[in-house]
Structure formats: structure tokens, C-alpha cells
Design a binder for these strands. Structure first.
Length: 924
RNA sequence: GCCCGGGUGGCGGAAUGGCAGACGCGGCGGUCUCAAAAACCGUUGGGGUAACACCCGUGUGGGUUCGACUCCCACCCCGGGCACCA
């Protein structure tokens, strides 16, 4: 080394300082570059293909410059005289053998390839193990597999892997719900074919998903937009048509002005907006195709042999909305009906016991009798009112806060129970779609009727009085609901408010022949035709001579044309294609027109779980033997938002097919679980809702195992998580944990010394091992992945503590058992690293084919008990005592503690609570 | 309005009648390094003390209990579902 003068040293220091600043800048730039790469994926659709390429090139150039800069810096630092000597590597490190580094990228690719080649994720039909059908709701191929998908699919995969290690032949298929509006919108916006766009998205998502290392059985993949699948969707439509469960009818339907199509009731949110796009839905009178799901209302309320969340069943029950009551027929006196024809109007009521309290009669504005019953003098006012009501949106109309409005028809209804004449009004709070569209007004005992009566100045007549006090109708401020006993009701006076009383009224009107018991439902039939292109064709033709004619089974599928000219104007784009529309009638051979509407995508997703059982069948939708091999689904996992849509439709389908003899079971999903969702700014993360986070960058940086474990570590799986800047920090923890597992396993000696489980340390290790087995196997079976991971972390901490305290322990049997147990328990959560380590410690079979370790309570048992010592319920001390210590001994030991003794003072303790093996509480 | 779910450190969360804050992140202090990163060790609810002691603390207010995050009553806030359904 040359001698340096003072100024040389000074400038050296300055140069080194500047270089270091530069170095820190390159580090920061690198961080930005990583963030940018994430955004690039998240906003891929906005960038477009060209934009993405340009962006990628820019990033690549910047990356290259950074590398050059970093090289330059390290070269200059090395060349700097001040640092030459310090740059030399410490000798000690190079003498040590380099331990193998945990390199996720390498081992993950390696094992994914091996698993694929050995086919160990394919569930064969002829397997002697009991079957386990582990199903996840298949995604829509938006082209963007974001972190929300990963969360969902990882949890399902962890569960499936755990069940496999428990000895089941797990079938865990995957597919894509590939028809639907976004493809069509992309086609319009970018001028690409919807089919090509969808299939390329599927390819991309499949590749992204494969990096997760799940046990998805790709041999069973189902894609609903391919003819070999939708052929059978069409076939099922025909089956339902044959069974009388599909029909065409004109009805007021929900129309989304933005998506230019009709929607099912289930697809309209409770605020009256479109479930897909958020536009306000309007009502239109249109001829459409329906499935008669209402015919199954009662059976959909049964849940035979299923294990579903109470909440989901309640949601479905509320949606179906069964109410029991009676149909009562009122005769009408219409002054303007000169021909004196007898008009009768039925009402539905759940309270026939209040019939004597009827003081007016109500019709919905859409009721077909409104025009006929309105007298000449009221015509103009009525027309205006009905018009306003029709134009009102659902939101305005269904606002319960709104003041009651209405118009008197001038006609009267005759109450069949007492022949009383009451005025007939029209009001918009009566809905045409529920019951009969007509209601008897009982203001004293129905809040809405009460408000109406007060607004219109109509009489209020009490037919119930509470016990022990009397209410006067003119003093009432609200309706009296379910209280007291019957009054003012002739022979019924004095009866209590009860089901029996209601039944007595029903018996009475049935005897008189003016009504009968009836049940109504809130749920309507399922509207399944859509005025859009990208969906399964409806296999129907319209013939001038024969009317509606189904396509014969042999001519299926009706192929959806690929090159379509889009005009989203409320009519299906297919109707502009004469070559599609014009056909011949299968019955008479004459000219006919094809149905140009397409099927709701929810129809395609109502049976995909059956196709997974027999995905390549070209002869049938499925083979019954194969379906019976796997169905029903043992575990179904998906978001709770499907409770009243997909989950209801799929149950209806299964029951309908059961009735047709196509299936031998009635419930498709035995056990159901709703995972939570990953939220971004409080909303579900999804492409249609804006910002998403791509897992790819994280996977590249930390490995799929770390990302999987990190997602499962965020919290309880059914709770989901809010995604923000801090969330990703948690990844560091699991990444460190995996590195620790790597270090422990790769540091294991080749053979054990054969030392038995005798020392205090080995016993401690064995106890920890079995406690961990108990906790982790219990947690994995209950979707408690976060706590399973935390116990594994604790276990690895224990291993490290023990080995640093006593490195000889690594040669014991207990250590070998502990490490192998750790790998097996961790395998479902982090499948690659555990497989690699399993082989590195000398095994030749797969860790995923091992059985779940068996918990032995005897080996987990402690040999001391810790007694909590409380004074007045406050913890003051702890005592470690040998197991089997007597109550008297414990009490003596506790009273001997100086702190306890001083707390008691010279008095006597009032009471001593002793919970054996747990705690002593001294009350003073 | 009705029906579910939830409210715990700076953050994600754990504990379902018996040690509140497991596990992890972040912070602080340290080891190693010219330095940074990584890794490792220690520490980390608030008040209080030299250190202990001690006091306070699970949305709010009551209650039950020897003992309450946990059970009961009332209320507030957040999320989800339903809602003029006769």
C-alpha cells in the first residue's frame, strides 16, 4: 500500500461518500422499478398491447443502466485506496462450507415439472381411497389473475392438499366461466373477436395460476364457451323445455340501459342497480325465456343432508320469501260497467283474521282492472297517476319513507266476510308482481295501510284490542300489530292473537266459498334470455306454421358464430346475421327463424361441477356412473355474494335433473365455505371495479410458497383482508420463516445417533412436536390457516433455541422426528420448499404422499403444572408444581408466597377458589 | 326499519369464563460491514419507578361471577344481506 498524504485521504473519503450516496440512490431506483412492474401488470388493460411493450422496453433499458451504474460504483469503491483492504472477504467465511441457499424460483419450477410429469395431481376414478371432491367456484377469465384470486385458490388448495394427506383421493378441478359481457365489451372496444380474447385470457391466467403449485387437475379443465361444453348447456335447456320448466312469456322485466340487456331479479341489487355495471335498472314489458324455478320454491327451502353456513341458508330463505296466508275473493261494484258483468278480484293476505277491519281496497297501478274500474270523472287523474308510477324507477317507488299516494277509482269492493262496501283505490305501494296485485286495506293493523288511511282520510277500524286497556282508533299514531284479542268481528270476538285464530278465519271463508288457504313466494321465475352475443345460443327456432320448435338433439350444438358485427342497441347482435337467423323448421322443413337471444351465463355455471366428473364425453353431457363416483361435491368454496344467484340456481338445476331421472341426488354441494375477500379501498378487488394487485412480482421476488403462506397468514380465511401499502410488509415474516425452515432442515445430520427420548431437552422437543401436531392438524381442518402457520413458526423457533443451546440434540431421534413432522405439517401451505427439503434429507417419495402426523396425547403431556395465583381475581404470581399435586399442597404453597401473605395481612381469606391444575384465587 | 358478522397495541391478528396482546410486521438498541442490504441477538400496550412494587387498559354504559375480550341488558360505530312482499 502506498503512503497517502492528508489531502489524498480527504478526497478519498469524499469520493467514497459520494459513491455511497449514489449507491443508495440506485437502491431506491430499484424499488421504484419494482413498484412500477406491479403497476404495469395491474394496468395492463389500460396500457393496451403496444403501450405495454413500450413500457416494458423502457423498464428494461432503465434496469440495464442501473446494472451498469452499480457495477461502476462497486468497481470504483474497490479501486478506492481507502477501501481496498476492507473489501477483502473475511477468511473465516470462505473456509466454511457454503450452505445451499434457498432459491425458490429454481426449486418451484423443478417440482412443478416433476409433479406434472408424474401426474400426481390427477384424480383417477379407479382409486381405492375414499373420494373427496374439492371444488372452488371457477373464475371469469378477465385476463388478470390478481391477488384476490390467489388468496381464494390458495386456501382451497391448502385444504385439498391437507385432505389428500389425510388419505383421500382428492379431485380438485379447475375451469373458466367463459361466457359473459366483458368479452363482448372488449370486442366492441378493441375490435377483436370475443372468443379469441377470452381464450387468450384463459391461457394467460392458466399460466399465472400454475406458478402457485396447486393440485389442480388440469386433465379435467372445463371452459364454458367451447362448443364441446355449451352443446350440453343447450341440451340441458331442451331437457328443461321438455319438462315444462322453460317457457317463453311476456312480462315486465329488468332492463339495464347500459348493458343493453335484460337481467334476472337476482342480478338486480337491492338499490335497484345492475349487479354488473351499477346502472339504474328500468322495467320493460318484453317477451323472454324463463326457467320455472318457482315450482321448486318449497324444495329449495329444504337442505337435506347439507352442511351450509346458517347465514347462507337464511339469505336463500329470505330470497325465496315464503309466506302462508289466504286468497280471499272480493266482488266489485263498478258503476260504469253497464253490462253488469260480475267482476271478482282476489287478494292475498297473511292476516285473514283482520278481515272485519277492512275499510278500503287497493290495486297496483299496473293491475289490468284499473282502467275498467275507474269511473268517468276519475279517468284523467288516474291516467296521470298510473303513468307517473310506471315511469318511476324501482328506487323511488320502493322508498318506504315516501308519503303514501293514490287515486280513488270511484268503484267499490264487497268484503265477503260481512258484505260491506269499501272504496277501491289505486296506489303504487301495491306491487303487481307479488300476490295478486290487489290488497285489502286494514289500516288498524298494518302500518302501510295505516299511513295510507291517515293521508287519504279513510276510516280506521280496530279488530284487535290489547289486554287490559282500550285503544281508540282516532288516537292511534301507528298500527297495532300482533297484540291482544279479536273485537268487532262477529262470531270471532274474544279469540286471542294466534295461529289457531287465523286458521278459524280460513276455515270460515273456505266454508263460505269465498277464499282458501294459500302460500306465496317472493322469488320469481328465473329470466334466462339475454340480448347479447357472447353466450350459449338458445336451441329454438320460430316457424310460421309450427311456432316454437326445439332443435332436435342430433343437431346440437347450435354453433355461436365467431365473426359478428356488434350493434349493442338492445337487440341481440345475432339477429343481424341472416346466415345465422334464417333456417328451416326441423318439424315441417319450411322457413324458420332462429332464436337470437343467448343464455344467461349463470345457466352455464349451474352444471359445470358435473362436467368436471366426465369432461371429455362426446356422447353425453356426463356419464352417470362417473358422476356418481364423485358427486355430490364434498367441499365447495367461494364468495358469499353468490348466495342468491349461483348457489340457488345450481340447487334448482340439480333438483330438476333429479326429477328427470338424470341425477340420483338432490343437493349438489354437501359442505359450503365462504372465503373472505381481498379488499382494495374497502371494495372487493376485481378488474371490473378498478385497481388490482398482481401476484407475479411478489412470486418472482419471494417465491410462490412465501406468497401462499403470506396470504394465509393475513388472518382468518373467512375474513379476507384489506390490501394497502402495509399489507405486503407481512410477506417479510413468512419469507424469513421459510428461510429458517430451510436452514434447519439442510443443517440436519445424515443419520441419527440413535439416542432415545430420555433427556430433558429431547422430552421437551417431543412435547413441542406433538403439541404442534395437535394444533396444526386441527387448524388446517377448520380453515384456520393463520394460526396453523403461527404454531409452525413457534415450533421452528423452539427447534432453533434447542439446537443453539445444545447442538448435539440435532443427532437425536427426537430431532429427526421433529424436522420431518414440521415438513409434513407445512407441506399443504408451502408445497415446493417442503418437497425439496423432504428429498434433501434423504427421502425418495413425495412429501405430499405422506400421511398427516398422528397426535399422541401421552407424548404431548406436560410433567409439571403451572398454577396461576390470583388475589381477588388479579394475577399475582405463578407456581410450577409437579403433576398430581394435591389441593392442600397447592393451597399451602400459595399461602406461603410472601406477596400473597402480605396481601392477606393478618385477616383470614374469605374464600379460596381452586381450579385443579389451573389456578388458585384468594378472596379477601 | 329488520336479520347476520365485526369493534383488542403503531399495523395484520391471537386468546370464547381463568396469565390479554400468541405469531408476525413495524419501531428502538446491538452484533457483523468502509457502507448498505441480508442475517442474527435483545427490547417493544400506556402510566409509574433507579429498579421493583403498583395503577390503567379489549367501542360506550350497566349487570352476572371468586374471576369477563369472552356470558346477559342497553347503546354507539363499521361491514354485509333484506326491505312498502300485503
Amino acid at each position: 500500500m502506498t503512503l497517502l498524504n492528508q489531502s489524498d485521504i480527504q478526497s478519498s473519503i469524499e469520493r467514497a461518500t459520494r459513491l455511497k450516496q449514489l449507491q443508495s440512490l440506485t437502491y431506491k431506483t430499484r424499488q421504484f422499478l419494482q413498484k412500477d412492474a406491479q403497476y404495469q401488470i395491474a394496468y395492463a388493460s389500460e396500457l393496451g398491447e403496444e403501450g405495454a411493450i413500450e413500457h416494458a422496453n423502457l423498464s428494461k433499458n432503465l434496469e440495464q443502466s442501473l446494472i451498469e451504474l452499480e457495477e461502476y460504483i462497486s468497481e470504483r469503491l474497490r479501486g478506492n485506496n481507502m477501501t481496498t483492504e476492507m473489501q477483502e472477504k473475511p477468511k473465516a467465511a470462505s473456509e466454511r462450507p457454503e450452505p445451499t441457499r434457498y432459491n425458490p424460483a429454481g426449486i418451484e419450477k423443478k417440482w412443478q415439472k416433476i409433479w406434472e410429469e408424474t401426474g400426481q395431481n390427477h384424480a383417477a376414478d379407479d382409486d381405492s381411497r375414499p373420494k373427496f371432491y374439492n371444488l372452488v367456484m371457477f373464475p371469469y377469465p378477465s385476463g388478470d389473475l390478481h391477488i384476490g384470486h390467489w388468496y381464494n385458490f390458495t386456501g382451497v388448495d391448502v385444504f385439498g392438499r391437507f385432505m389428500r394427506m389425510k388419505g383421500y383421493n382428492v379431485m380438485q378441478p379447475f375451469g373458466f366461466d367463459a361466457f359473459g359481457l366483458p368479452a363482448e365489451n372488449a370486442a366492441i372496444k378493441r375490435g377483436v373477436q370475443a372468443g379469441k380474447w377470452t381464450l387468450s385470457n384463459i391461457d394467460k391466467m392458466r399460466d399465472q395460476l400454475k406458478t402457485m403449485g396447486g393440485i389442480w387437475d388440469w386433465e379435467r379443465e372445463v371452459v364454458t364457451c367451447l362448443p364441446d361444453y355449451y352443446k350440453w348447456s343447450e341440451w340441458l335447456f331442451l331437457k328443461l323445455y321438455e319438462a315444462g320448466l322453460a317457457y317463453r312469456a311476456k312480462a315486465p322485466v329488468n332492463w339495464c340501459p347500459n348493458d343493453q340487456t335484460v337481467l334476472a331479479n337476482e342480478q338486480v341489487l337491492s338499490d335497484g342497480t345492475c349487479e354488473r355495471c351499477g346502472a339504474v335498472v328500468i322495467k320493460r314489458e318484453l317477451e323472454q325465456w324463463f326457467f320455472k324455478i318457482t315450482a321448486y320454491a318449497d324444495r329449495l327451502l329444504e337442505y337435506k343432508g347439507v352442511n351450509w353456513p346458517e347465514k347462507t341458508m337464511t339469505m336463500q330463505k329470505n330470497w325465496i320469501g315464503r309466506s302462508e296466508g289466504a286468497r280471499v275473493v272480493f266482488k266489485v261494484e263498478a258503476p260504469d260497467q253497464e253490462n253488469q258483468e260480475k267482476i271478482e278480484v282476489p287478494v292475498f293476505t297473511t292476516r285473514p283474521d283482520t278481515l272485519y277491519g277492512v275499510t278500503f281496497f287497493l290495486l297496483a297501478p299496473e293491475h289490468p282492472l284499473v282502467e275498467k274500474l275507474t269511473v268517468a270523472g276519475q279517468k284523467a287523474e288516474m291516467e296521470a297517476y298510473v303513468k307517473t308510477a310506471r315511469n318511476e324507477s324501482e328506487i323511488e317507488r320502493q322508498n318506504a319513507e315516501k308519503l303514501k299516494t293514490g287515486v280513488f277509482t270511484g268503484s267499490y269492493a264487497i268484503n265477503p266476510i260481512n258484505d260491506e262496501k269499501v272504496p277501491i283505490w289505486v296506489t303504487d305501494y301495491v306491487l303487481m308482481g307479488y300476490g295478486t296485485g290487489a290488497v285489502m286495506g286494514v289500516p288498524a293493523h298494518d302500518q302501510r295501510d295505516f299511513e295510507f288511511a291517515r293521508t287519504m282520510g279513510l276510516p280506521v277500524r280496530l279488530v284487535y284490542q290489547p289486554e287490559g286497556r282500550e285503544i281508540k282508533s282516532e288516537e292511534m299514531t301507528e298500527a297495532l300489530i300482533h297484540e291482544g284479542h279479536v273485537v268487532n268481528s262477529g262470531p270471532f270476538d274474544g279469540l286471542p292473537d294466534s295461529q289457531e285464530t287465523v286458521q278459524k278465519f280460513i276455515d270460515f271463508i273456505e266454508q263460505k266459498g269465498v277464499g282458501k288457504a294459500e302460500v306465496t313466494y317472493r322469488m320469481r321465475d328465473w329470466l334466462i334470455s339475454r340480448q347479447r352475443y357472447w353466450g350459449s345460443p338458445i336451441p329454438i327456432v320460430y316457424c310460421e306454421k309450427d311456432g316454437i320448435v326445439p332443435i332436435p338433439e342430433a343437431d346440437l350444438p347450435v354453433i355461436l358464430p365467431e365473426d359478428v358485427n356488434f350493434r349493442p342497441d338492445g337487440v341481440s347482435p345475432l339477429s343481424y346475421m341472416p346466415e345465422f337467423v334464417n333456417t328451416t323448421c326441423p318439424k315441417c322443413g319450411g322457413p324458420a327463424r332462429r332464436e337470437t337471444d343467448t343464455l344467461d351465463t349463470f345457466m352455464c355455471s349451474s352444471w359445470y361441477f358435473l362436467r368436471y366428473c366426465d369432461p371429455d364425453n362426446a356422447e353425453k353431457a356426463w356419464d352417470n356412473e362417473r358422476v356418481n363416483r364423485w358427486m355430490p361435491v364434498d367441499q365447495y368454496t367461494g364468495g358469499p355474494e353468490h348466495a342468491t344467484m349461483h348457489l340457488l340456481y345450481a340447487r334448482f338445476f340439480t333438483k330438476a335433473m333429479y326429477d328427470m331421472g338424470l341425477l340420483s341426488f338432490e343437493e349438489p354441494f354437501t359442505s359450503l365455505f365462504h372465503q373472505g375477500m381481498i379488499r382494495s379501498e374497502g371494495k372487493k378487488m376485481s378488474k371490473s371495479r378498478g385497481k388490482t394487485v398482481a401476484p407475479d412480482v411478489l412470486v418472482q421476488q419471494f417465491g410462490a410458497d412465501a406468497v401462499r403462506a403470506f396470504l394465509m397468514f393475513l388472518g382468518p380465511f373467512d375474513q379476507g383482508a384489506e390490501w394497502n401499502d402495509k399489507t405486503e410488509q407481512l410477506l417479510t415474516g413468512v419469507s424469513r420463516f421459510l428461510n429458517r425452515v430451510w436452514a434447519i432442515a439442510t443443517d440436519m445430520p445424515a443419520e441419527t445417533s440413535g439416542e432415545p427420548f430420555t433427556s430433558a431437552d429431547t422430552r421437551q422437543l417431543q412435547r413441542a412436536t406433538h403439541k404442534t401436531i395437535q394444533k396444526v392438524t386441527d387448524d388446517l381442518g377448520h380453515w384456520a390457516f393463520n394460526t396453523a402457520l403461527s404454531s409452525l413458526m413457534e415450533f421452528s423457533n423452539t427447534l432453533q433455541e434447542l439446537s443453539s443451546k445444545n447442538s448435539a440434540i440435532r443427532h437425536t431421534e427426537a430431532w429427526f422426528e421433529a424436522v420431518q413432522t414440521m415438513l409434513k405439517l407445512l407441506a399443504p401451505l408451502a408445497p415446493h420448499i417442503t418437497e425439496e427439503l423432504w428429498h434433501q434429507i434423504g427421502h425418495t417419495d413425495s412429501v405430499h404422499n405422506q400421511s398427516v402426523p398422528v397426535f399422541d396425547p401421552a407424548l404431548a403431556a406436560d410433567d409439571v403444572v403451572t398454577i396461576i395465583v390470583q388475589v381477588n381475581g388479579k394475577v399475582r404470581d405463578k407456581l410450577e408444581l409437579p403433576i398430581g399435586v394435591s389441593e392442600a399442597e397447592v393451597k399451602a404453597a400459595v399461602l406461603a408466597i410472601p406477596r400473597v401473605a402480605s396481601a392477606i395481612g393478618n385477616g383470614e381469606p374469605k374464600k379460596i377458589i381452586y381450579v385443579p391444575g389451573k389456578l388458585v384465587n384468594i378472596v379477601i
